[in-house]
Amino acid sequence: MTETAPKPAVTLVDIFALFARIGLTSFGGGLSAWIYREVVDRRRWLTEDEFLAGLTLAQILPGPNVINISIYIGQRLRGSAGSVIAALALLLPPMVVAVLLLVLFRNFSDLAWLRDLLEGIAAAAIGLTFSVGYRAARHATRSNRWAPAILALVFITIGVLRWPLIPVVLCVAPIAVLVARKTKKSA
């Protein structure tokens, strides 16, 4: 079995180290953005298209999106062992931290400064996700001239109008793929 696209040599240890680090340092949510930044921007283990296709799958499948995208990335890089390692490395270390916090602080939500701290962190994490959205949008627009229309359609229906995600994705996905195919042929 040969891969058509040459992949950089990523070991299981590399996968474990990266996902454990993301799991332990990703405060404030928006983990998909953290993973995108590390895997696509900084390490180039995956292309933007590969990551975004995985993210679409991760979103429509049941289960937490970040766990699903980790399984997808691990699988892509190192097969089944890679996917198990990626998911466990992302989950187990922060799980220990969460339980420790639970044991140590019983009245967590009463501390006003802590609430402010977490709110500020979460706001910056939203900024992180917006920046990844911006970069992904610039990339998608370069390769496909219908991309802005598809992007706007999804953002307005799901983000602004709050239509349910699954039916929208199931309707838009075939259209998006068809126009991508046409653009490619005419190019």
Binding site: S32, A33, E48, D49, L52, A53, L55, T56, Q59, T129, V132, G133, A136, A137, H139, A140, T141, S143, N144, W146, A147, P148, I150, L151, A152, L153, V154, F155, I158, G159, L165, V169, V172, A173, A176, V177, L178, V179, A180, R181
Partner: peptide, 10 residues
């Protein structure tokens, strides 16, 4: 094809 869709979701 899925890239702009995923971007909209992000």
């Amino acid at each position: 094809g899925l890239a702009p869709l995923a971007t909209g979701l992000i």
